[in-house]
């Protein structure tokens, strides 16, 4: 284990100042960064900026018609949050699939976002719910829509002096959100496929509006499949819709073979899970 120098600023303003002066690797719960300190998975970071003391980045609150989560919100925090359970249960469901209890106690939502793994468990939910990632630096704050936050393999829209400070998820009336993670085992598994799906429909017989389909582990970054979304827009969750949507999503994604699964499996399972979610919504 390599132990790079670490600074632990007491306030967010101090953190911004340090980031303005030199390049740091931010560390929060450390569940991704500590693994990189082995030095076996590429060069370890030169300097660490510990965010753990920044209480400004904690808390889950309702702000008008949005749910706002501090970047240091842990998965355990999400699982325990009555607000999340009541208003966005899919987020709680997703948090419960991350690692296991020890990881959930340390790992943060902001870290999952900034780590930008294509397999990040929460990210398809953020895509499906039109979340906004609020980032900050000494120059101020700016909001980046989730759909444009991950720009490539482990690449984000963050500038070197910026950190994720909070996540804003709009709460939309009559919106349904669904989450499925497919992993090798029931805990401590990196996903093979993650599906986050949302739509707005006042009743189960209403056509779907504002359809969002976010996917993980099927591309070099978490993606939305906009062609499949467009197909689903305005449709009812019928057998024909499900069959056609499944075919379309299978054609729209280009997953790869890797150590965890195969391209064929990922494509098939994405299609089958989407089919299942539509079928369940249509109750047929």
């Amino acid at each position: 284990m390599i132990e790079p120098p670490l600074v632990s600023p007491p306030t967010l303003a101090d953190a911004y100042r340090l980031l303005a002066e030199s390049v740091y690797r931010p560390i929060a719960g450390g569940t991704d960064v500590l693994v990189q300190l082995s030095g076996q998975l590429g060069p370890p970071p030169d300097r660490l900026l510990d965010l753990w003391r920044l209480d400004e980045l904690r808390g889950i609150e309702l702000d008008g018609d949005a749910l706002v989560l501090g970047a240091l919100t842990t998965y355990s925090g999400i699982r325990r949050s009555a607000v999340c359970r009541d208003l966005l249960p899919a987020l709680v469901e997703a948090a419960a699939t991350v690692g296991a209890a020890q990881i959930q106690n340390r790992a943060t939502l902001g870290g999952n976002i900034a780590n930008a793994s294509p397999a990040g468990d929460m990210l398809p939910v953020l895509l499906a719910t039109d979340a906004t990632i609020v980032v900050g630096s000494i120059r101020g704050e700016r909001s980046i829509p989730a759909r444009s936050f991950w720009t490539g393999y482990r690449q984000t829209a963050l500038r070197p002096d910026e950190i994720v400070i909070r996540i804003r998820i709009p709460l939309v009336a009559d919106r349904q959100v669904r989450f499925r993670k497919i992993g090798t085992r029931r805990a401590q598994a990196i996903s093979k496929v993650v599906v986050g799906l949302s739509w707005v429909a006042p009743t189960s017989g209403s056509p779907w509006r504002t359809v969002r389909l976010g996917l993980g582990s099927v591309a070099e970054r978490p993606i939305r499949v906009t062609a499949t979304e467009a197909f689903l827009e305005g449709r009812l969750p019928t057998p024909d819709t499900a069959a056609e949507a499944a075919q379309r999503v299978a054609a729209e994604i280009q997953p790869i073979d890797d150590v965890r699964s195969t391209a064929d499996y990922r494509r098939a399972v994405t299609a089958r899970v989407l089919h299942r979610l539509i079928r369940e919504a249509g109750s047929w």
């Binding site: 693994v35 090798t184 085992r185 990196i190 150590v259």
Partner: peptide
């Protein structure tokens, strides 16, 4: 164990998985 050119690809606990208590 998955191999490529005679090397184990999943030679870490993150990638060589065994059942957990939940499994």
């Amino acid at each position: 164990i998955k191999l490529h050119d005679g090397r184990y690809l999943n030679d870490r606990l993150a990638t060589y998985l065994i059942p957990t208590a939940l499994d």
